[in-house]
Write a protein that binds this DNA or RNA. Structure first.
Lengths: 368, 368
DNA sequence: CCACATATACTCCGTTAGAGTATATGTGCG
DNA sequence: CGCACATATACTCTAACGGAGTATATGTGG
């Protein structure tokens, strides 16, 4: 009766949902009178962290803006721009985020949207741990053009795939899946799981198959978070070891699966990638990543940098133009190595017309 | 160059996004060294509220579970089940939510997902207000069957449309739009707006048109939050007056637009409605609202309760069956007033197959 | 037993997305 | 100078799907 929804996130806006699976706890005594006395007291105060996954496309490579912190310290890892939400200084959550990003990187954010609020990671409470996390992380996705036009002074653009090598399907299926991930996840799926997970109707094996497209299941490029979570849960990420997860300590030959990040930042970045991949398909957000004028081929390359597989060129052009998303500037771009390409710009007016569509995608069979 | 995205939320998972419009603040001095000293101190501690919008369908009416608080007090309003997140008591955010809901209503939640985290409402900081909000609200959407099977002891089911009468398009366009909302919003759109809003490329008039489908624009049933926000901003909701918004005090004949709720609960409910309407189309979540066995007609009526317009019966059946979402139980339901209907149940296995689809909708022209 | 109501099966057709083919118009090298 | 090459762009074909209508089956209630 109760849904144990698997982590399947086609449209991906809710990538981060359903992570705490909906198992019911035993009924507790009726304390409904507490409704009258529940107030938010100082005992329940927690710190709120604002975290920015800032995404761009640089030379056809999808990148995120990271700050390297204490490079000399051992175990130093990358961080996303972040800082605490301070009600005194910040009128809004997003305002606080923009302020932190400006301070730390010099960048003035353009498009930004909230992703998800995480609380169950970073000093993850193991059974018997009373010192539960007192920090809640609110993740944001920001999209920007990868130039220094917007004031960028600190921070470096790093490819998504340094953190998530198994997500890089641009050439073909990444070797790391078959060589490292698949065999270990299958081992993990066969391990006896703890009581809390045994109640689920969706087994570990099911989740592994769905997430990584094994045994005939198809690869869903939006399930970025689900895949990372699965690896974390199986103890296969550095963060899991850092957090003292027993599953991580159980491996004698734990492979290196991408670069780790501080705190739960890789989790937030995974959410951002999944959301970007999903949203680009149904909202005109690619244009946040583009310069004002661009050719349709450049637009296609940017979409492909985000989504991975190669698109069908002719159909891409027809769909983009047909949807009224762009209008020609009148100029052309020469020296493209062939016939000059017309330059286009984003038609901002579409946002005021019908519910604005995204960029329709259609995979190319061979390559054209 | 910078997008001032209007509040258009077709797929709706991000209904609550883009509310703080992406205007850039002036560049601030380079304080990037703060990156090393920023820690979440007690000074930045805030309270976190967990709020549950629990949705069901009762006699073909979409309803939410509310608790009436202090019914004798003047100005008493409904509240959603809620309580503070207490890191000591709650392992996870969702766990805390489930615990509060159980305490206050007796209900054991099934499906639940996080909606959005709000911080800029409820004692909304007007210019010069230093006592900024110290409470952040995390909204959750829960879907359940509207029976007492799950332990419900407190709280009452109230129709969505008591809070949002302008959303009720089941019969036809609600009169309240043309009679009350449209003329006042047009007045408000023509008022000189403050500096912060003048910079936007999307005007108030544009937003009004888009949100309420005026001047030929089409009605988008998913833009529930955007519409509520617009009414709040224009000072047309009771909450806006309660919060001391100047826009609310400017009206001499402010109409009553739906029942108000405490704090930002109506905002959270609006987010929940928009998300439900969006998600039902691309994920099989309707079944969370259904009993185990049901007829296809009952399923259709439930979908219609959520989405509003009448669907094309034959196509609905074909699409639902064709998507493999349901399987016949073998039984039939008699006494339907006509030919007995086959009973179906949800095929939970679809969640393990291809990215599980939702219920495809196709509006019926007349009615069949 | 007949009117009625609902359930269910089947057909038709226009739109669209996927895929392929053909043509236009530059660059750069021999 | 002109030809190979590369890219841009226009056009065609087709299978799938969704919107819409029609016909038939099988109950209930007067």
């Amino acid at each position: 009766m109760i849904s144990a929804y698997p982590d399947c996130g086609e449209h991906g806006e809710d990538n981060a949902m359903n992570m705490e699976l909906s198992g019911r706890a035993k009924p507790s005594p009726d304390k409904s009178q507490r409704v009258l006395e529940r107030d938010i007291t100082d005992n329940d105060s927690v710190g709120i962290g604002l975290n920015a996954a800032i995404v761009a496309v640089l030379d056809n490579e999808p990148v995120a803006l990271v700050v390297r912190q204490d490079p000399d310290r051992i175990g130093a890892t990358d961080v996303l721009p972040f800082g605490p939400f301070s009600p005194r200084d910040h009128r809004t959550l997003e305002g606080g985020l923009r302020s932190w990003v400006r301070d730390q990187t010099g960048l003035d954010l353009g498009y930004a949207e909230q992703l998800y609020t995480f609380a169950d990671r970073g000093r993850l409470p193991e059974p018997g741990d009373d010192d539960a996390p007192h920090v809640v992380s609110i993740g944001y996705l920001a999209l920007t053009e990868a130039t220094s036009h917007h004031g960028l002074t600190h921070g470096i653009w790093r490819s998504w795939y340094q953190y998530f090598p198994w997500e890089d399907w641009r050439r073909s299926r990444p070797d790391i899946i078959g060589a490292e991930i698949e065999p270990r996840l299958k081992l993990w799926a066969d391990r006896p799981s703890t009581a809390s997970t045994q109640q689920r109707s969706v087994t570990r094996g099911d989740r592994v198959r769905m997430c990584f497209g094994l045994d005939g299941a198809s690869w869903d490029e939006e399930k970025v978070l689900e895949r990372y979570e699965l690896l974390y849960e199986a103890g296969l990420t550095d963060e899991a070891l850092r957090d003292g997860r027993t599953a991580a300590q159980a491996w004698t030959d734990r492979p290196k699966l991408g670069a780790a990040m501080q705190s739960d930042h890789r989790r937030i970045l995974a959410t951002a990638i999944g959301r970007t991949r999903a949203k680009i398909k149904y909202r005109p957000v690619v244009f946040e990543l583009m310069p004002p004028d661009f050719t349709l081929y450049e637009l296609q390359k940017t979409v492909e940098a985000i989504l991975g597989p190669h698109l069908h060129k002719q159909n891409f052009r027809r769909l983009v133009e047909g949807a009224g998303l762009v209008e020609p500037t009148g100029d052309v771009k020469t020296r493209t190595g062939g016939r000059p390409a017309k330059l286009f710009r984003f038609r901002r007016e579409v946002l005021l017309e019908r519910p604005a569509p995204g960029v329709r995608v259609s995979a190319a069979p061979s390559r054209n």
